[in-house]
Design a protein around this nucleic acid. Sequence first.
DNA 1: TCAAAAGTGTTAAGCGTACACCCATGA
DNA 2: TCATGGGTGTACGCTTAACACTTTTGA
Lengths: 238, 238
Amino acid sequence: MSAWTPPPPGRHVYEYPRPAVAVDCVVLGLDTDDLKVLLIRRGVDPWKGAWALPGGFVGEREGLEAAARRELVEETGIGEVFLEQLYTFGEPDRDPRHRVISVAYYALAKLSDFKLTAGTDAAGAGWHPLSKLPALAFDHATIIDAAVARLRGKVRYAPIGFELLPPRFTLTQLQRLYEIILERELDKRNFRKKILSLDLVIETDEKQTGVRHRAARLYRFDRKKYDRLVKHGFEFAI
Amino acid sequence: MSAWTPPPPGRHVYEYPRPAVAVDCVVLGLDTDDLKVLLIRRGVDPWKGAWALPGGFVGEREGLEAAARRELVEETGIGEVFLEQLYTFGEPDRDPRHRVISVAYYALAKLSDFKLTAGTDAAGAGWHPLSKLPALAFDHATIIDAAVARLRGKVRYAPIGFELLPPRFTLTQLQRLYEIILERELDKRNFRKKILSLDLVIETDEKQTGVRHRAARLYRFDRKKYDRLVKHGFEFAI
DNA sequence: TCAAAAGTGTTAAGCGTACACCCATGA
DNA sequence: TCATGGGTGTACGCTTAACACTTTTGA
């Protein structure tokens, strides 16, 4: 940036070839027993017909996160989700035709809010388990790996897991969430003790419904309290 | 693969003005009792004469990290340092004249290897303590904040602190490093116990020199062993 | 009444924390 | 010999980890 020099006379900076700038979104959702990622089917070349991350080019006067949210709504109908910048991918040959730099974002969605059909739907969008992803366009498999690594790293030190659950959840659901993301089993009693000792997950007087065994109590995450504690130096940790 | 080709005639995405893509580098170094950042003086408008991060535009067929390393060498003479992508800043108005998206990197340098004069030198580069930064060009103050936050967060879970020290260091130097970065005092005995228990910092038979009190033993970080442990699931933590 | 998951306490080991004095060295 | 930092151990409290049975509910 600091090395920018004015374009020489007679030429304008816009005459130089510049990379195109895109955003791509890795939307992760939690299913019964695995994480899923939302993919769309590409309708145009290159990689026509392949599965790809939702995304697209950044508008001329549009912020990066704004572009990511716009693409998410346009291509998948998803709005109002947790969205965070992940990494910027800019290898010169990641797009076979011309230089495209992609600012990747990852989003955490409550799967229940976005029930697409299991594989593919009319709009060409579908949830795919991370364990069996189809062939993906461009370097999108790498981008997904980075998103999952970020989630795994961050879920233990930040209360982002709740973004994957409905507003009211059982402690067992929460435990399953950590087990799925961290890929290891947790002890039920120790988990509950730990979670409840943080005093950020508070019990409601509601119970689980539509279940054919003893109904569990529903809890909710107290974000206001969390925000307050963070201001005083509190650090969340599981 | 294929080189960039000029836009074909007619309506095409490439006719639209595109953001320029730059890289900026936050180079952090550890001084006796604070962290310093390497700034250069801008020679051109906008912000002519202001201090700014080293950086510049990404070449047409150049990777992002490659661009960051190139700018670092060109503008400060620094090569061969720890360098990691930080965040991409793309607010539409961050550059007053035209759209520039900047992929920020942060680097950790051994200050001793790059002794510039305390404030400014001939080349217009200088180390500035984070506690009294001059007025900075563009949103560079924000970028520096992000770099420091990343360092603070990461230093506890990854052995990146060593990048700020010479290859042989005393345990007191290492402790000071953590104290400066984390902004809190640590207990000497507990710190040593903890560090040595990780078994990644190993004692050499050398001693500190040029010091007017008892010379401390020098240690080194065993990166090979660390890499080996990481493969088996080990997690570094201070 | 059975199947399925909810809910609940105790103990032992390991880890973090607090704390103070003698030692080696160069000026 | 003095000033400066180097180097060392122990005790206490808290956190983590291991572990199994009873309860509730709907089918």
